[in-house]
């Protein structure tokens, strides 16, 4: 059940320059799944629209959600000023999430969890859920791309899988992007889950097509409602979509996760 509510900030810290890590207490934690997102609303009335932010980690037992976000403008700058105990307006949980069961169809399925930059956070909850389903660490291959040596969330990810790092400046791991890290380390997978910038997702789509494996990619787009009403955040699809009967799926409700070959990116 979707709900807009006031949640409580449990903690917040800056884990890399401009990257903030916030835990919030919310009843939405009970329904949150990997790949879903919440909308966060600034208090400043000049910035009205919600900021869609992916769920990084869920602690259902504590009724807590973790978001890790980059300060990109006025809204996120405001969020970054919130301190423990303050309230924060959120709407959730939104979107379809990653199809985790698709990684468990066969014994010993090998997966890639690929995250680029601020697309890395949703990979943590996904890794946690896959590990929870009994996936072995060596089959849970987490390939993450950063700009530089500020490898936020890396230690969290290492708890659940085998982490391979790529950096644009070559300071850590493979110089280049996540695909370079895959090649350099000779990695193979049966299914891919990914979130990151569009050039990375395009490269993954192409790689998955050649390897003939499914790739579930999480997309982003400017949103207004977050619930499927405004039709602001669409992506072109090969098939006719079920809502408008054209070729436009709604990223907020039909996604944000799509099988890569079904969308034109």
């Amino acid at each position: 059940m979707k709900e807009k509510q006031m949640a409580k900030v449990l903690s917040q810290r800056e884990i890399a320059p401009g990257i903030f890590d916030m835990w919030i207490e919310t009843s939405l934690a009970g329904q949150a799944a990997a790949g879903q997102f919440i909308c966060v609303y600034p208090r400043d009335k000049s910035t009205l629209l919600p900021r869609p932010i992916s769920i990084c980690e869920v602690r259902d037992d504590r009724g807590a959600l973790r978001i890790v976000y980059r300060v990109a403008g006025k809204g996120t700058a405001e969020f970054s000023s919130y301190r423990e105990g303050e309230s924060i307006a959120v709407l959730g949980t939104l979107g379809n999430g990653f199809p985790v069961q698709s990684a468990r169809e066969k014994e010993n399925t090998r997966v890639f969890l690929m995250g680029g930059g601020i697309g890395i956070p949703p990979m943590l909850q996904l890794a946690k859920e896959l590990a929870g389903l009994g996936m072995k660490k060596e089959n849970l291959q987490i390939v993450v791309g950063y700009r530089d040596a500020q490898n936020f969330l890396r230690e969290d990810l290492e708890r659940y899988g085998s982490v391979f790092v790529a950096t644009e400046d070559g300071s850590v791991g493979t110089r280049g992007n996540v695909m370079d890290a895959v090649t350099k380390n000779g990695l193979l997978a049966d299914v891919i889950f990914a979130c990151g910038p569009m050039p990375m997702l395009r490269a993954i789509k192409q790689y998955a097509a050649q390897a003939q494996i499914p790739a579930y990619i999480s997309l982003e787009e400017h949103m207004a409602c977050g619930v499927g009403a405004c039709l602001g955040c669409v992506v072109k699809t090969g098939e006719i979509d079920h809502h408008s009967h054209v070729h436009n799926a709604r990223i907020c409700t039909d996604g944000p996760v799509f099988e890569a070959q079904t969308v034109e990116i």
Binding site: L49, H222, C230, L231, V234, V235, V246, N248
Partner: peptide
């Protein structure tokens, strides 16, 4: 089909 994105 509507317009290309970004739409909002």
């Amino acid at each position: 089909p509507g317009n290309p994105t970004p739409r909002v």
